[in-house]
Nucleic acid binder design. Sequence first.
DNA 1: TTCATTTCTTATCTTTTGTTAAGTGGTTGT
DNA 2: ACAACCACTTAACAAAAGATAAGAAATGAA
Lengths: 181, 181
Amino acid sequence: MNLKNLYKLFRNSKIKSFDKEDAIIAANSKEKNVFFIRKGIVRSYIINEKGEEVTFQVYAETNIFTNVHSILFNEPSKFTYEAIEATKVYVIDYDLFLEITSKNPNLLEWNRTYFGKRIIKRAFQRSESFVFLSPEERYKKFVIDNPNIVNRIPDMYIANIIGITPVSLSRIRSRIVSKKD
Amino acid sequence: MNLKNLYKLFRNSKIKSFDKEDAIIAANSKEKNVFFIRKGIVRSYIINEKGEEVTFQVYAETNIFTNVHSILFNEPSKFTYEAIEATKVYVIDYDLFLEITSKNPNLLEWNRTYFGKRIIKRAFQRSESFVFLSPEERYKKFVIDNPNIVNRIPDMYIANIIGITPVSLSRIRSRIVSKKD
DNA sequence: TTCATTTCTTATCTTTTGTTAAGTGGTTGT
DNA sequence: ACAACCACTTAACAAAAGATAAGAAATGAA
């Protein structure tokens, strides 16, 4: 599956634009849309018991994001999905998404193999990174895995994503710099 | 989907018994079997660069485990799957598993909804626990989520699973006890 | 530009974790 | 029963992380 087919899938869908800090999927929403990011960055976050925003994941261009909890389990979203930059997305209803992918053999294969599996693989790899890697190693891995994202989002989001505090990430960064000398 | 249908799926499959510490799936294996645990506990682990075993996950009765990396991506398993207790499993080849589930409407629906989604949900919830919970909270959650496992496996496995050292888990446990007074 | 806001860094202090090692208690196998 | 082994605890120390706050740097808005 390549980007060509993906564009085919989304070319007849709606396009929506969001300004920085716009909510794309509100918390507690049960909407079942599939979003393909054409331009921009999106993050998912929750508000914890202290009232702080905690970022869970970020998505950039050519990535798909959805309200996983709704699509898979018909549950309201725990997360708010918010544009970090001005963002353009293709939007397609999940049922229509399934209908289209099931009619086109290429897309069906893609949906079965690439799309669903990619979600599982990422979730697995992420859990593995917490079990097998230190915070510093997780940060280095994030930088390597997300070269197109790392300089476009606040470090505090990265800190949340790898499970540490922003202050601690700042110290890790200065530690890495001083080691290089 | 209930256990009845699951038993139906596995009733004509092979049954295998493993002694404590037997490897059920060897590391680097590409076998594509699906295992249903009838009795016993299984853990997956890797050997890290220091030569230490690091446990990633445990599975107990009525749970299914598979060589996820092989089934989804045709890659060799990173993990060894090992019986922690004397264990009896139903074994069925993945292709046969797919064939049977696709013929029986109940099983097909179960495979689409319950089986695949359960894997995703668990992987998500696990990642979330590392982002949103402290080590102590992760331990308490593990105990609540796994009442049938927690007293049957060494604490050192639990420590690995929640991403801390055995020594640290021991301290957390004594902290919890002293708080209760 | 200038001002206000937000993020990042740095500092201080406390708490927790990692590491290593020793000791205790329990289990296993012969 | 006995020895050997393994898991758990505890201790001591070093390293890292969390919490809080203050200042610097960057960003955004008027």
